[in-house]
Amino acid sequence: MGELILIRHGQTGWSLSGRHAGRTDVPLTDEGEAAAKALGPRLARRPLVAVFSSPLGRALRTAELAGLTGTRPDPDLTEWDYGGYEGMTAAQIRQERPGWDLWRDGVLPGDADHPGERLEQVAARADAVLDRIRPLLSDGDVAVVAHGHLARVLTVRWLGLDASASRLLGHPHPGTVSVLATEDGRPFLSAWNVP
């Protein structure tokens, strides 16, 4: 049985400053590009049978720089739609909503381009991705290039947990790899947030 190799896209200016970048297509920084290239040798040793990516440029560029060929854009891998919180930091949001927690409180609706998404909607997208990937794992590893919050939801859904358990995982750093695997038919987290 293959493993699901989960890659967070490289650093962007918004990830560096802590701004929520859901649907806004923010480019990689020079450091983000270097980190993506550095993933190449590690990923080249993997028997990849498929590569999926968020359709956003920062994820597709990470896949390209990491040497992942045949990448298939998948809209279900797009980051959480932060609605009215798009572009804001958690500190800015908490000035308006003291004690705010994304996992508990969600987001406020935004404009037509950023209507916002509930956690349950993000989890449904993650489940759809996993339903497409699981059958491929019988032939080898599958790589997924995605985003921080989406990666956390995807991971807990892999583990069979409620999406709210995503709060228990640390935010994966840009340009890192996590590995989702199985042992005796049971899913487990083999590696998390590895540079």
Rank of each mutant, 00 (worst) to 15 (best):
R152S: 11
E31P: 00
Y82V: 10
G22N: 04
A151G: 11
E64N: 10
D111H: 10
L169F: 11
A50Y: 10
W14R: 05
W158V: 07
A165V: 09
V144P: 02
D101T: 02
A191W: 13
A191C: 08
L130I: 11
P187V: 05
R125W: 02
E120T: 14
D25L: 07
K37T: 12
D131N: 13
D127K: 15
I133C: 13
L180N: 07
E3A: 15
T12C: 12
V179P: 01
D141E: 12
R134Q: 13
D30R: 00
P195C: 02
V145G: 01
V49T: 14
V129I: 11
P73T: 11
T24Q: 08
D113R: 15
V194M: 09
E33W: 02
G140Y: 02
L159I: 04
G87F: 09
P98D: 06
P109A: 14
L180C: 13
R186L: 12
Q121K: 04
L180K: 05
I133S: 01
L102W: 13
P115S: 11
A146K: 02
G22H: 13
Y82K: 06
G175K: 00
D101A: 05
S138E: 15
V51E: 03
A146Y: 06
H20N: 07
G110R: 07
A165T: 05
A34F: 00
L65C: 03
P135L: 06
V49G: 11
R94Y: 13
R104Y: 00
A191V: 10
